[in-house]
Design a protein around this nucleic acid. Structure first.
Lengths: 163, 163
DNA sequence: CCTAAATCATTGAGAAAGTCAATGATTGGA
DNA sequence: TCCAATCATTGACTTTCTCAATGATTTAGG
């Protein structure tokens, strides 16, 4: 039996990365957040790609589907994207007929981004796909853990207090 | 008093983005994760930049400081970076004398990445800076909420079970 | 042994994403 | 009416991501 004090080459080869988890980095909340995010992002990307969507374009589409009629600046701020990235994103969605730029009646500088019927349909599909993927990614946690986690993330993410 | 049924232009102009939080996107765990991560990343970047570090290089440095003597493949897997990105990252740290590539005695293909004394010193500074920033970013949560959140994130991030 | 397949670090190229400054149209306030 | 601010857009530039290919080395099978 190998000496457990020093990790043997065999241990290092096996499952393998556990010893790095024991470093300070593995305790760092920012790192955990980044890693969890990377995994969830990868899971979502995978199920969205057959629909011709990326996580980014899906976020825009989903907000365009909502009744809130967001404009580009609001999307930019909410999604933390540069306004110029929004332009490209919306150009692409609009080119595919999923979304429309509607001039704001009250302010002609502003474009409101609205989903078309095709956009709504695709968004619905995308939503069931990502919800399934999300459920799988979060399956390591129990339902009330997930609920608690979401509450905490909402607070961190700067969501307004629940009414 | 304006009719609360329809958001008035005044409301939309004010704090402003609350109504987007009420969409399905604002309930999506993946979105919350992404947004919380973006904020924590921005906070860390800000305090690291005066030290000449980015979040990426700090992660590598912190792991190089640990006693675990990670090699490049392990760093790549743990940090979810392409091996080629590690090369560039380590080149830069090594050029600044913060880190050293040591040939692995047991396998000559492998480089172990170890921090120099200068690297340890800088990492210590960076650590207090990021810990302070992290504390500020997580201050909206109470201490035991933070502990719970970290547990959940560890599970999501694929950390091994605690012993 | 010896060869074949696999692994590690590296290079390089091209796509995607992020950052920033400048512009034209429009609005709102002094 | 004029001036500063705001919105969407463009363009340039940097950084990051993703992939395929390579040389050195190790491992496994015959």
């Amino acid at each position: 039996m190998p000496n457990p004090k020093q990790p043997t080459p065999a241990v290092r080869a096996a499952g393998g990365l556990d010893r790095l988890w024991r470093t300070s980095v593995g305790e760092d909340a920012a790192f955990l957040l980044a890693r969890a995010n990377a995994l969830s992002l990868a899971a979502a990307s995978e199920v969205l790609s057959p629909l011709g969507l990326k996580v980014r374009s899906y976020s825009v589409l989903a907000l365009a589907v909502s009744a809130e009629r967001p404009n580009q600046r609001e999307l930019s701020e909410f999604l933390r994207l540069d306004p110029s990235q929004l332009v490209a994103l919306i150009d692409e969605l609009e080119g595919r007929g999923l979304v429309r730029r509607e001039p704001d009646a009250a302010d002609r500088r502003v474009n409101v981004v609205v989903a078309t019927d095709a956009g709504r349909a695709l968004c619905a599909d995308a939503r069931v796909a990502t919800e399934r993927a999300e459920a799988a990614a979060f399956a390591v946690l129990g339902d009330d853990d997930i609920a608690r986690l979401k509450e905490h993330l909402r607070a961190l993410a700067g969501a307004p207090e629940a009414d």
